[in-house]
Computed example of a mutant assay.
Amino acid sequence: MKDVIFATLTGFLIGMLFIRMKLPLPAPPTLAGVMGIVGMFAGYLVAVRLGWGK
């Protein structure tokens, strides 16, 4: 859980830094894009559970 909190805080700060420096965000700026990444991660976990990663 500590890792999740640290990653969230780090991402938040980096997002603020990118806006401050007027740089494009290196992540999907929409919920649909973020959910695509979540879906890829979920698919990866399912594939590993099915033994496809061996």
Rank of each mutant, 00 (worst) to 15 (best):
D3G: 08
P24I: 01
Y44D: 04
G51T: 07
K2Y: 07
L50Y: 04
G15F: 05
P24Y: 06
V34M: 02
A32R: 13
G33A: 04
V38L: 02
V34W: 01
V38W: 01
G11L: 13
G43H: 06
F41C: 12
R49C: 05
G11P: 07
P28M: 02
V46K: 09
A47Q: 10
L17Y: 08
V4Y: 08
A42D: 05
L17N: 05
A47R: 11
G43N: 03
K22R: 15
F41H: 08
P29H: 07
D3W: 15
G36K: 10
L50S: 02
M21F: 14
V4S: 03
A42I: 14
M1I: 03
L45E: 02
A47W: 01
G51D: 00
F18Y: 12
T8M: 12
A7C: 10
G53C: 07
P26A: 00
I5Q: 05
G33L: 04
P28T: 04
A42T: 04
F41V: 14
L9H: 06
P26M: 00
M1R: 13
D3C: 13
V38Y: 09
G33S: 04
F6D: 05
L25K: 03
G11I: 05
P28S: 05
M21N: 08
L45M: 09
V46E: 00
G33E: 02
G43V: 00
F12P: 02
V34G: 01
K2H: 09
G15S: 10
G11T: 02
I19T: 04
P29G: 05
L13F: 15
V4G: 02
F18W: 10
L31Q: 08
A27Y: 10
L13T: 05
A47H: 04
A47V: 06
L25A: 01
P29L: 14
K2T: 13
L23P: 02
G15E: 02
V46P: 02
G15C: 08
L13N: 01
L50T: 03
R20P: 00
G53V: 14
P29M: 10
V34Y: 11
K22Y: 09
M40Y: 12
G15V: 07
W52L: 15
L13P: 03
M35N: 05
G36T: 11
K54L: 06
V4I: 13
L45Y: 01
P24A: 06
M16V: 03
I19W: 10
L25R: 01
P24E: 03
T30C: 06
I14L: 12
V34L: 02
F6Q: 06
A27N: 03
W52E: 09
G53P: 00
G51Y: 10
L13H: 06
F12V: 08
I14E: 07
